[in-house]
Design a protein around this nucleic acid. Structure first.
Length: 821
RNA sequence: GCCGGAGUGGUGGAAUUGGCAGACGCGCUGGACUCAAAAUCCAGUCUUCGCAAGAAGGUGAGGGUUCAAGUCCCUCCUCCGGCACCA
């Protein structure tokens, strides 16, 4: 049998016509398996790097289907977003047109690779029937006070001409275009994800089947820290400064306070400050400093003295209050107590400005060292110079001090998070309009649910001005206030596209529903997603936003599960010439020529065989060639079977020869091992190598002598069923050639038969005085004695071992020896 | 700086989690077929010594535990990823 391109098309057509991958959510809910691949942003054509994602997802889906699950594997489009708009500006094509063209092209690609989706569930986030429900979600959040507008210092990308969420700023640069991000004070919409910080953190422990790496990243991003918020009375003011610290045990070493430039009290203190000019200049300097400058390694600490003092509540000492550039504006209270002896940053600052350094913690191992205040010790230990608390260890002191402060009302236990609220406004056109209206009389008024969707107007000038292009569309902008019917204006910003993608996995269950975003009963049956597959670049962004939205919907009683994705798999990149594939580098491997020359199955097989799927892998055309060779070899086994002469019935009378036995053993051990590879962590590479071994052995057996027809038939049949998740077209073709009707995916996954796997060897442990001294495997055929007898002499054992296992393990004490089978 | 992950042939990578290191693929070498090439098939391919059977060494470096270590423990080196003034 020869491979021929028409095989691909033949079976792709078959799957489509027979609805092989179409799911009825009501009828198929029992024994369901929801396999989801992160939906793509439809920009240009897909290359083999993208293909890896879909091929992995498809292999899982097809494997599960063969195992008898009702597999839902849907596809859709994350279709709003900046690239479409940027293309529109550059080429004068409407974003919608550009997007739809790309979707058509990519759909054809996915189909040509034989990815088995239920296309009847396709969702497209830029279509009104979808974004209507994204707006609905916004209103739901608004109703609960979780969507709010506030003025804040926000990240602004001057190139994209829009604000960005914290999560979209990477090392001070725009995640998308790598432009240095600026800080601007703007009034923007936020989602209150911080309300869910604790839940998002706690429930990470439920995600046993997520990569540890992703969970750690989320944990760090949420950044919970526990400590104490201490009130410092300001000398001469009727005012307290709240400072958060995780090291309350160092309170007696606090020798100054430091405030961030935008602390609320700064304005008041300026009235009296003798060095007002100096302070103003200092604040201006920090304010205008680009974020990127702050992120360099040795960012110079600077500050200015306010000429005010605070009182340390524990010892009454007056300590100076400074403004300092290293105090983060958005974290904690924006004011901290500084302990130079035990914090390297405070130490650096104190040295520079000649502030007191008082050691209050001593490392436990070193009892007395003469030199103090010349170095920083940031660890815990025993308190010194701390009045009544001296001699106590850090941990105990933390608790006692917190208790004391709470009882005196001068401090309280507190928790802080690094996580900030999710900024969702974007000053761009190609996104879901935020469904809000501003009325001079009534203020901020949400659009009524019944008035959704707020349609995105299509006739728009795209040129970015820093204002949303919608600002200039009168038909859109001007609207009657829903409350008082007076002229009012719509919100012109659109939503971050991560809002669209934070709930799409729910819409797949009810994609055509016109009255609700999803049917609750069906969603509760089909979710959580059993297997989610995607790139690790979404470890924080998409995956945390989705978890947040899911938890919100759960709290509203709209879904019943608290985590949307039960298992997560993050695949690595495919690189070429050591670099990520990109058009600008000119190292893109386009799938088209591969399909032409080798067909879809060869490409799929190679992508899965390249290496562990979670790791990056280097594309090698020669490796692809190897997979092609392997498939050709496999197909020649089919020929060998078809040409095989010999009467199967007659053959069955005779007993199997050694080769046939060994081949059948290989067939069944392969089934067993591959199932383990796939049930575990998707070790497609080793699964495929096992199939190659099977083919090699089958060849050897054929070359060496006669193989019974039924044995060969079983080998070939199992071989192509095992290959089916990887090479579905060829497996279908072979399946039909072997006389089976219908699709191979309605047949079951092969089961290994234990009778062929019976071990001919036995593992024994050698005990000396009851202690395991050695374990080894002995070939039973060589020494039946080993199993029959419970105890053997040392000599005998050594003989058996010499005959059957390598010398290396012959270390036995000349004592009593037992054999445990 | 902190937190993760990883270091195995010429190369991508295996090793039932402590049990014959290098499976499988690529590449390379030799042979068969061919006027020749491609394709295909067969054999070989960690290093050293040996015609061979075989012997010895070998998983970033050094030490340790164990009958047995790529795998576990300690010290160090290198690379990759994430976070990065989070008080």
């Amino acid at each position: 049998m020869e491979y021929d391109k028409t095989i691909d098309q033949k079976w792709q057509r078959y799957w489509q016509e027979h609805g092989t991958f179409t799911v009825d959510v009501k009828a198929d809910a029992e024994n369901k398996y929801y396999c989801l691949v992160m939906f793509p942003y439809p920009s240009s054509e897909l290359h083999v790097g993208h293909a890896r994602n879909y091929v992995i997802g498809d292999a899982v889906a097809r494997y599960k289907k063969m195992q008898g699950f009702n597999v839902l594997s849907p596809m859709g489009w994350d279709a709003f977003g900046l690239p479409a708009e940027n293309q529109a500006i550059k080429r004068k094509i409407h974003p919608k047109e550009w997007t739809v063209t790309n979707i058509t092209r990519i759909t054809a690609q996915l189909k040509s690779w034989g990815i088995g989706y239920d296309w009847s569930r396709e969702v497209t986030t830029c279509m009104p029937d979808y974004y209507r429900w994204t707006q609905w979600l916004f209103l739901k959040l608004y109703d609960k006070g979780l969507a709010y507008k506030k003025e804040a210092s926000v990240n602004w990308c001057p190139s994209c001409q829009t604000v960005l969420a914290n999560e979209q700023v990477v090392s001070g640069e725009c995640e998308r275009c790598s432009t240095v991000v600026e800080q601007k004070k703007l009034k923007q919409w936020f989602f209150k994800i911080t309300d869910y910080a604790e839940k998002l953190l706690d429930d990470l422990t439920l995600l046993n089947d997520w990569p540890q790496r992703v969970k750690t990243m989320q944990k760090n991003w949420i950044g919970k820290s526990q400590g104490v918020e201490i009130d410092f009375v300001i000398d001469g003011y009727n005012k307290k400064l709240k400072c958060f610290t995780t090291r309350v045990d160092t309170i007696f070493g606090a020798t100054y306070l430091a405030l961030s430039w935008d602390h609320s009290w700064v304005e008041e203190l300026m009235d009296k400050a003798p060095n007002k000019k100096e302070i103003t200049a200092f604040i201006e300097k920090i304010k205008n400093q680009p974020l990127s400058e702050r992120l360099v390694d040795n960012f110079e600490k600077e500050g200015v003295f306010t000429h005010c003092y605070a009182v340390n509540p524990m010892n009454g000492t007056k300590i100076p209050i400074w403004l300092a550039n290293y105090i983060l504006a958005g974290y904690g209270t924006g004011a901290i107590m500084c302990v130079p002896a035990h914090d390297s940053r405070d130490y650096e600052f104190a040295k520079k400005y000649n502030l007191d350094i008082v050691e209050v913690i001593r490392k436990n191992e070193e009892p007395e060292t003469g030199n103090n205040s010349n170095s920083v010790y940031e660890g815990t230990g025993t308190l010194i110079n701390s009045k009544d608390y001296s001699g106590i260890d850090s941990q105990t002191a933390k608790e006692r001090l917190a208790e004391y402060m709470e009882s005196k009302g001068i401090g309280r236990r507190a928790v802080n998070y690094k996580l900030r609220d999710w900024l969702i406004s974007r000053q761009r056109y190609w996104g879901a309009p935020i469904p809000m209206i501003y009325c001079e009389r009534c203020g901020e008024v949400p659009v009524a649910y019944d008035d959704l969707p707020v349609y995105l107007p299509e006739d728009v000038e795209f040129v970015p001005t820093g204002q949303s292009p919608l600002t200039y569309v009168d038909d859109f902008l001007k609207v009657a206030c829903p409350k008082c019917s007076q002229p009012a204006q719509r919100e012109t910003d659109t939503m971050d596209t991560f809002v669209d993608s934070s709930w799409y996995y729910l819409r797949y269950i009810s994609p055509k529903e016109e009255t609700v975003p999803f049917v609750r009963a069906d969603v509760n049956k089909w979710l959580p997603v059993d297997q989610y597959v995607g790139g690790v670049e979404h470890a924080i962004l998409h995956l945390m936003y989705s978890r947040f939205i899911n938890k919100f919907l759960r709290d509203q009683g709209l879904v019943s599960f608290s985590e949307p994705f039960k298992r997560l798999f993050t695949q690595g990149m495919i690189v070429k010439d050591g670099a990520k594939m990109s058009k600008s580098k000119g190292n893109v491997v386009a799938p088209d020529y591969i399909l032409q020359k080798y067909g879809a199955d060869t490409m799929r097989l190679y992508i899965l065989f390249m290496g562990p799927p979670e790791k990056d892998a280097e594309w090698q055309d020669s490796g692809l060639q190897g997979c092609w060779r392997f498939l050709q070899r496999s197909l020649r086994l089919v020929d060998a079977l078809l040409e095989h002469r010999g009467d199967a019935d007659q053959e069955k009378q005779a007993s199997l020869n050694q080769q046939e036995k060994s081949l059948l053993k290989k067939v069944h051990s392969t089934i067993k091992d591959i199932s383990a590879d796939l049930d575990g962590n998707f070790q497609f590479n080793t699964a495929i190598s096992r199939i190659m071994e099977l083919v090699n052995q089958a060849y050897k057996s054929l070359n060496d002598g006669y193989i019974r027809k039924d044995v060969l038939a079983q080998t070939v049949d199992v071989l192509f069923r095992l290959l089916a998740p990887f090479t579905p077209h060829l497996s279908e073709e072979v399946n039909s050639i072997l006389g089976n009707s219908g699709t191979i995916f309605k047949r079951s996954w092969p089961q290994s038969d234990e009778k062929y796997l019976k071990e001919e060897s036995v593992e024994i442990a050698i005990l000396v005085n009851g202690k395991v001294k050695a374990k080894m495997v002995i070939d039973v055929s060589l020494s039946q004695e080993a199993v029959k007898t419970k105890a053997l002499s040392v000599d005998k054992i050594q003989n058996i071992i010499r005959d059957s296992v390598p010398k290396k393990v012959i270390y036995i004490d000349k004592k009593i020896v037992n054999i445990v089978a």
